[in-house]
Structure formats: structure tokens, C-alpha cells
């Protein structure tokens, strides 16, 4: 177990480094000059003072060779400095202060909804004997995934805020303002959970050991919940890890639709203003969240499947 944990921690560090590198390559090496953009938003100005440009470049460290910039920024990131916004001049982490809790609330609520919905749908659908009922239930997730999230958000607003007036249309006030955003973000992810879980439940039901359990006299329901579910849970656990990791991306759309403040909204704004260091900082925050969640998921694997920690020993 100790070795397993150590290996996972090592992998997590590698993923963080890789995320940093990918974001650096995309944001700093692709054509597109943050300083020029900053001094000339929208490309409207006809003249930019070269001296001012050079000064700014030096101040932000953009005049150094790329490889040197890479290491400077990498070392800073390791020490907890995720960069400074070129718009506000504030460190990225400072602007997170009020935004992060709001996004965490949104992500938490939608994850809860996603897991509950996904598990309920998958468990019910795969337990159905009537084929048409099973297929009808299982056709729901692909439908939910095919809907554009921003459009679903707007539809919900139209019906439940403007039409029925049940929930506020925007803002971050209280639980009521969280309901529609959480549904918008949680339903499609719940659909993914349902799809993956239903697939692996179905596949597990076809395993010989399930027939053996039934031959012991174990009822269908008990087989479903005691034997099949636990064996089928592993692929879904992985998916839950990935979903949480991608909730920032989802939050960009949902927070924009509902005009909520949060990390997603910050990112939306940073991209709109091409505030490169800010974008990188937020991506790194998201990568940290992703890594932490997946580490937690990894640590629950051995609890679910005893083969995981010992596989190495047996394989050799």
C-alpha cells in the first residue's frame, strides 16, 4: 500500500508537470504576442510606442529566451506562484479568493446530482427484465449528452426563471441560485456516469461468476447489488475522477450562462482579453484539482478491487 501510494504521488507530480508544459507550449509558443495584444486590444491602434512595448516586455519577462521563461515560470509555479495577470497586475491566486468557493459549490452540487442520477438510472435500467423498458431508459443518457450545455442552461432559465419564476436568473445568492446551474452541469455528467456504469453492469452480468452466484441461490437483486455492482464500479470511479477534473471547463459555460461569479467566469474573461498568464494560472489550478481528485479516486481503487495493489506480485 505504501509503495502504491508513493507511485501514485509520483505520477501525480508528473501529470502536473505535463499540464504545465502543455499549457506553456500552447500559450507561449503559438503565434500570438501577449504584450502586443495588451497594448493594442482588438488591433485597432495604428501606432504602438516601441519603447513602451520593450519596457513592458522586460517587466513581464517576455524578452527572455523561451527556454529561460519556461524554467522561470516552472520554478515559480512549483513555489506556488501561478503567475500575474497582465490586465490587473495581480497574482492569479489572489483573484481566485472569492471565485474558488463559488465554483467548488457548483462542482460539488453537480457531482452529487450526477452520481445520484447516474447510479439510479444505470442500476434500474440494467435490472429491468423487460427489454423495451431497459432500452428506453438506456436511450436517455446519449440524448442528454447530445444537448449543448449552454442551450440547456438558457432553456432552463426561460422556463423556470422567466416563465415560472421559481429560481433567480443570475447571481450567487443562496441555494436557490445553485439549483439550475447544478442541473445544467450535473445532468450531462450524470448521463456519462449512467452510460459507463450501465455498460459495465451489463458486461459484469455476463461474467461466469455471476451465474455461479445465481446457482448458489442468491436472488437477482442481491446478485445485482452485492456481486455485480462492486465489480462494475471501477470504470465508473475512473469516470468520476475525470468528470471532477473537467468541471472547471463545464463551469466556464454554466457560470457564463447564469452570470455567476466563479473560476469559470474568470477564465472566460481571461480568454476574452487574451490575458495569457491568467489563463495559464487558471489552467494550472484546474490541473491541481484534477490531480487531487484522481489521487483520491486511485486510493479508493484498492478498497473496491483487492487485485489492484497485489497485481504486480501475482503477475510476476
Amino acid at each position: 500500500m505504501g509503495l502504491y501510494l508513493l507511485r501514485r504521488l509520483g505520477q501525480a507530480a508528473v501529470v502536473l508537470w505535463a499540464a504545465f508544459t502543455v499549457s506553456f507550449v500552447i500559450l507561449y509558443m503559438l503565434p500570438g504576442d501577449p504584450v502586443a495584444i495588451m497594448l493594442n486590444p482588438g488591433g485597432q491602434a495604428t501606432y504602438v510606442d516601441p519603447e513602451a512595448e520593450a519596457a513592458l516586455r522586460a517587466e513581464l519577462g517576455f524578452d527572455k529566451p523561451l527556454i529561460e521563461q519556461y524554467f522561470t515560470r516552472l520554478i515559480a509555479a512549483v513555489q506556488g506562484d501561478f503567475g500575474t495577470s497582465i490586465r490587473t497586475g495581480e497574482p492569479v491566486l489572489n483573484s481566485l479568493g472569492g471565485a474558488l468557493p463559488e465554483t467548488l459549490k457548483l462542482a460539488g452540487a453537480s457531482l452529487l446530482l450526477a452520481i445520484t442520477l447516474g447510479m439510479a438510472l444505470a442500476l434500474t435500467a440494467t435490472f429491468m427484465r423487460a427489454k423495451w423498458l431497459r432500452e428506453a431508459l438506456l436511450s436517455l443518457p446519449p440524448l442528454a449528452i447530445s444537448l449543448p450545455g449552454f442551450w440547456v442552461g438558457l432553456m432552463l432559465l426561460q422556463v423556470f426563471s422567466f416563465g415560472l419564476g421559481w429560481f433567480p436568473a443570475f447571481g450567487n445568492d443562496g441555494v436557490a441560485s445553485l439549483v439550475l446551474p447544478a442541473i445544467t452541469l450535473g445532468v450531462p455528467t450524470g448521463a456519462v456516469v449512467a452510460q459507463v456504469l450501465a455498460n459495465s453492469l451489463g458486461a459484469t452480468w455476463r461474467q461466469p461468476f455471476v451465474e455461479v452466484a445465481r446457482a448458489k441461490g442468491v436472488s437477482r437483486l442481491r446478485t445485482h447489488l452485492v456481486h455485480v455492482l462492486r465489480n462494475a464500479a471501477i470504470p465508473s470511479l475512473t469516470i468520476v475522477g475525470l468528470i471532477v477534473g473537467s468541471s472547471l471547463a463545464g463551469a466556464v459555460v454554466v457560470e457564463t450562462v447564469y452570470s455567476r461569479s466563479g473560476v469559470g467566469r474568470l477564465l472566460q474573461g481571461a480568454v476574452a482579453e487574451q490575458d495569457i498568464p491568467m489563463v495559464q494560472g487558471l489552467v494550472l489550478v484546474s490541473a491541481v484539482a484534477f490531480v487531487v481528485v484522481n489521487l483520491l479516486v486511485d486510493l479508493t481503487y484498492p478498497l473496491v478491487d483487492p487485485r489492484i495493489t497485489t497485481r504486480r506480485r501475482v503477475g510476476a
Binding site: 461466469p208 461468476f209 451465474e211 455461479v212 452466484a213 446457482a215 448458489k216 441461490g217 462492486r230 465489480n231
Partner: peptide
């Protein structure tokens, strides 16, 4: 339920492939 009570108690089954016939997580 009636057949569940027969299986295991009245009729036992020795399956074909022991490699995949036991629940791996119990």
C-alpha cells in the same frame, strides 16, 4: 424466489472455468 431456494440448496453447480467463476472482489 422459489427457484432461488432450489438453487444451491437442492441443486449445486460446478462451473466450467475456475479462472472466472469466483467473484474477484470477495
Amino acid at each position: 424466489r422459489a427457484m432461488d431456494q432450489v438453487r444451491g440448496a437442492q441443486i449445486g453447480l460446478v462451473p466450467q472455468d475456475p479462472g472466472v467463476s469466483l467473484n474477484p472482489v470477495h
